[in-house]
C-alpha cells in the first residue's frame, strides 16, 4: 500500500525526535516529568499542566483499533479501498494511521482488536508508523 506519492511529513524542531525514532523503528511518546501525563502529538511542554519539563520515551507499540473509515477512492500512494484509522496506544494517546497486513473490510477490522506498530520506510528520512493485527 505504501507506494511513492502519499503526502509525507516535514518534521519541525519540536517533532524531530518522533521521526528520528520512527526511522530507528521506535515509537516515541512524551511524558510530563511533573504530572506524569503521557501525550501525543509532540510538543515541548505538557498540555495537561503546562510544565516544560518533559521527557521522550519509547512506547510499547501496542494499540487497539479505536475507529476508522474505509475510503473507496484512492489518492496517489494508496490502493482503494483502504482504511484511515485511529488507534489507541497502550500508553493512552491516540494517533491516526493505516492498518496493514489485513483485508480492508469491516469484517476484518473489528473495533478494539489488538494491534502492533509496523514501521514502513517512505524514503531515507521518513518512516511512517503503521499498525497490523497483533500476533498471538
Amino acid at each position: 500500500m505504501a507506494e511513492p506519492g502519499r503526502p509525507l511529513p516535514q518534521p519541525t524542531p519540536e517533532t524531530q525526535h518522533f521521526w528520528d525514532g520512527a526511522k530507528a523503528g521506535e515509537l516515541r511518546l512524551q511524558r510530563c516529568d511533573d504530572c506524569a501525563h503521557v501525550y501525543f502529538p509532540p510538543r515541548p511542554f505538557c498540555p495537561e499542566c503546562g510544565s516544560r519539563s518533559v521527557s521522550v520515551f519509547p512506547a510499547s507499540g501496542r494499540a487497539t483499533l479505536y475507529s476508522y473509515v474505509i475510503h473507496h477512492r484512492a489518492p496517489p500512494g494508496f490502493e482503494a479501498p483502504y482504511a484511515i484509522a485511529v488507534v489507541e496506544l497502550e500508553e493512552g494517546p491516540r494517533m491516526m494511521t493505516n492498518i496493514v497486513d489485513t483485508p480492508q473490510t469491516p469484517e476484518a477490522l473489528q473495533l478494539d482488536m489488538a494491534l502492533e506498530v509496523a514501521f514502513e520506510a517512505m524514503n531515507d528520512e521518513i518512516s511512517l508508523p503503521l499498525f497490523r493485527p497483533a500476533e498471538g
Binding site: 502519499r6 511529513p9 501525543f40 483502504y82
Partner: peptide, 8 residues
C-alpha cells in the same frame, strides 16, 4: 500535515 495527512 505530519500526523494525519500521510495516512490518506
Amino acid at each position: 500535515g505530519q500526523f494525519e495527512l500521510p495516512y490518506g
